[in-house]
Design a protein around this nucleic acid. Structure first.
Lengths: 219, 219
DNA sequence: CCTACCGATCGGTAGG
DNA sequence: CCTACCGATCGGTAGG
């Protein structure tokens, strides 16, 4: 399903086409992207259903129908907002550690970047994907639910690959199943995000980091 | 803040007054409770904002204003729904293991009951409190947010006490900080609920149980 | 991108 | 507990 060497789905965005001379489309894309980044901020606080076209329009100083014209429906706006949020997530969590050689140091850097992303409130309402997953997790036959589920699967698979590479490098206990460890890392990080949003107590990040360190072990 | 011997806030419900002869109030309370249990089911799927008075009324075969008359406002309905959901949570998770003597066996029973509560979908949309915490975690000055935060604190404190008692009994490694262990148990259980709701894959409960067993250790 | 509008639904009220 | 209603807001459309 997910190629071991391939993070393209997680890391790719719709490419900005560059083969037309006039700046109209580019400006259009820039407008669209700024709309979607504002939408992602709003949705991380209010949810993707609470993200209403009227409210977003007011916030952007646009008319409702002017904004609506960029998308065909509320669901299209929701899906485009998820794609924009994914770009921001990749920039803050997935990409930075990719320049490091594979192995334990890179895995640790990834986990640190992930906790930093929560702590810095890269989205004003905490992790966008944590919010949306909880909001849509029990709605059957919903496109939003399906795409965030696939995103979660990919993130878990991504963690798994980094864990396996650290094991292959002999820098991590090979007796631990990568999928089990990925589950536990995801649990610790997600719980820290949730509790931080509720309690505004940054010591939860120390708890998550402590838990992760214990799972990584000393060698 | 929370007395070590006291689970009253977590376990108590508004007592049903019994000192009046006529059954009107009792019937009223029964009606109210059935409304609120339906409300809790609905909210676990749609969220506490998605729980609209009109929808709940339709589901119960009542008029909107007839239902509304039981509560003064939507916020009152939300708070009463939380109290009803708390009763169900206590019945399934908190209460059963309380008949066991304090110690490791009781802690393990509690964790098993908690996972069973997720697995059995005691609420149709998964854990009511997991949903509501995520929905309200980034809304400032909100009564719902404050009460579910307090409920979470109490549940964590409850886990902590059970952990400490198992340590005092010499049945659990005393070098682990109870609050750290409670954080990790909460993380593992919450992640299992979330992933089960999204993926409908019951192996996540094995992952959570495996993680918990590893944290409990062999002695 | 706008104004002007649509039917449906929201939380809530009046009056019984 | 009901019918009948309120103003506000929802997603969405017509027409420019």
């Amino acid at each position: 399903m997910v190629d071991a060497e391939d993070l393209e789905t997680l890391a790719s965005a719709e490419p900005v086409s560059d083969d037309e001379a006039d700046g109209r489309k580019r400006r259009g894309n820039a407008t669209r992207e700024s709309i979607l980044q504002a939408a992602a901020d709003l949705a991380s606080v209010e949810g993707l259903e609470g993200l209403t076209i009227g409210r977003l329009a007011t916030e952007l100083g646009m008319s409702k129908s002017g904004l609506f014209a960029h998308f065909g429906s509320k669901e299209e706006l929701q899906l485009a907002t998820i794609a924009a949020a994914r770009r921001r997530f990749v920039d803050h969590v997935v990409r930075p550690s990719r320049s490091l050689p594979r192995g334990r140091a890179r895995l640790e850097a990834l986990l640190e970047d992930w906790l930093r992303y929560f702590r810095a409130e890269v989205f004003p309402g905490g992790c966008f994907f944590c919010s949306v997953k909880a909001e849509f997790d029990s709605r059957p036959d919903n496109a939003v639910r399906e795409i965030v589920t696939e995103d979660m699967r990919q993130f878990l698979a991504f963690l798994e690959r980094e864990i396996a590479k650290a094991q292959e490098a002999g820098e991590l206990d090979p007796s631990v199943e990568p999928a089990q460890l990925a589950f536990e890392f995801d649990a610790l990080g997600s719980a820290a995000n949730q509790q931080f949003q509720l309690m505004h107590d940054r010591t939860v990040f120390d708890r998550a980091a402590t838990g992760m360190r214990a799972r990584l072990g000393s060698a």
